[in-house]
């Protein structure tokens, strides 16, 4: 297989999986699951930037988009779940 064919297959796999991940993250009903899918989405998008030969953008996407953003959103999802269970009347504390 020539290099061009390999690159085309590589890009096709990257694109299709990115779309599937994006839909799964947006359509997910549960916040923590959506955040996990968002972290995976950030990793995948960073791979795409790396494939487009833009290592600086890939660096920023991996560090900010998936790493720090994912960690903050995990904390926010946990806080939202705790508030919801407390307002339902469960003994959360």
């Amino acid at each position: 297989m020539s290099q061009l064919t390999l690159l085309i297959v590589f890009d096709a796999v990257l694109l299709v999986t990115l779309l599937v991940l994006a839909f799964a993250a947006v359509l997910s009903p549960e916040p923590r699951r959506a955040v996990m899918l968002f972290i995976a989405f950030g990793l995948w998008l960073s791979l795409i930037w790396a494939r487009l030969q833009a290592p600086d953008v890939a660096l920023a996407e991996a560090a900010i988009g998936a790493g720090l953003g994912g960690a903050l959103m995990l904390a926010a999802a946990r806080r939202a779940a705790r508030t919801a269970s407390r307002s339902r009347g469960d003994d959360a504390s």
């Binding site: 790396a50 290592p55 890939a58 660096l59 960690a71």
Partner: peptide, 24 residues
């Protein structure tokens, strides 16, 4: 692809995994 700067992106990936697991 002959882009040596991608090694730094790989380092950030390793850091990111640690941060995500700690936050989780």
């Amino acid at each position: 692809l002959d882009v040596p700067a991608l090694l730094d992106v790989a380092l950030i990936f390793a850091l990111l995994a640690a941060v995500a697991v700690a936050a989780f």
